[in-house]
């Protein structure tokens, strides 16, 4: 489903260059729930932005659902983000002047869904995260946990197969953070591919597969938690292909 081959992202700033990620090769199968863990500045977000088609690698190849992302145009990438990917960010990234319902409707607006149907789907998504009674409020009237739930509803609204969450609990207290993680697990059980980015081992353990990165390189990978045929492996049967130790 997701395959990175020797992907690097290099930022050049005058004389010195920063290798945000440095030759990452990684495959994530359909219906997997994988956590990418690493310290701050290790390149997790850069990695997610590339997987999320928000950014393009400096080197290497990225295939999503078998398509080579490197040779797509802006608008084709937009369409992939719209239909295939759902984002959950640490800072929620809701649009302040739109109300909750309008925020959740956005991916559907860009899918060209007609208004009536759009409202129906968006309301369903809001119900799933249990925040439908706030539909007419604007984000600033909600707590952090509530805003993150709206963001999740928005990520779900377009029913994308892949959910990308970059430090989704980073700005939340432990209890609301746990609720968000429970929800991500539930989504994975329902068949979504979930990629969870965190610096917190406690959070990463929610995933069946843990990929650790440091200085832009993968240092360990607990291996696929789903077989090629899509069947789930129990935790201890998971392929141990980590040649790296940490």
């Amino acid at each position: 489903m997701i395959r990175l081959e020797e992907v690097s992202k290099i930022y050049r700033m005058g004389e010195n260059e920063v290798r945000a990620i440095d030759g990452i090769t990684l495959e994530i199968r359909e219906k997997e729930m994988a956590a990418i863990i690493g310290q701050s500045g290790s390149g997790k977000s850069t990695c997610m932005n590339i997987i999320g088609c928000l950014d393009v690698p400096t080197d290497g190849k990225y295939y999503l659902q078998g398509r080579d992302i490197g040779c797509l145009k802006d608008d084709e990438l937009a369409e992939i983000r719209n239909k295939t990917l759902g984002f959950i960010f640490q800072q929620y990234n809701l649009i302040p002047k739109l109300n909750v319902l309008e925020n959740v409707e956005l991916p559907l607006v860009y899918q060209g869904v007609p208004e009536k149907q759009r409202i129906e789907i968006a309301m369903d998504a809001l119900k799933r995260v249990g925040i439908e009674e706030k539909r007419n409020n604007v984000p600033s009237q909600l707590s952090g946990g509530q805003q993150q739930r709206v963001a999740i509803a928005r990520a779900l609204a377009g029913s994308p197969p892949v959910i990308l969450a970059d430090e989704p609990t980073g700005a939340l207290d432990t209890k609301t953070g746990r609720e968000v993680l429970d929800f991500l697990q539930k989504l994975n059980e329902e068949g979504n591919t979930v990629i969870l980015i965190t610096h917190d081992m406690g959070v990463a353990e929610r995933a069946k597969r843990i990929i650790r990165i440091s200085d832009g390189k993968i240092v360990s990978d607990s291996g696929h938690s789903v077989s090629v045929s899509g069947e789930r492996k129990s935790g201890y049967e998971a392929e141990r292909k980590g040649s790296y130790e940490f």
Partner: peptide
Amino acid sequence: TREIGIRKSLGAKRKD
């Protein structure tokens, strides 16, 4: 700018 980024992340095309 940030709003534009958010919209793009949700699939807004250039013409949108």
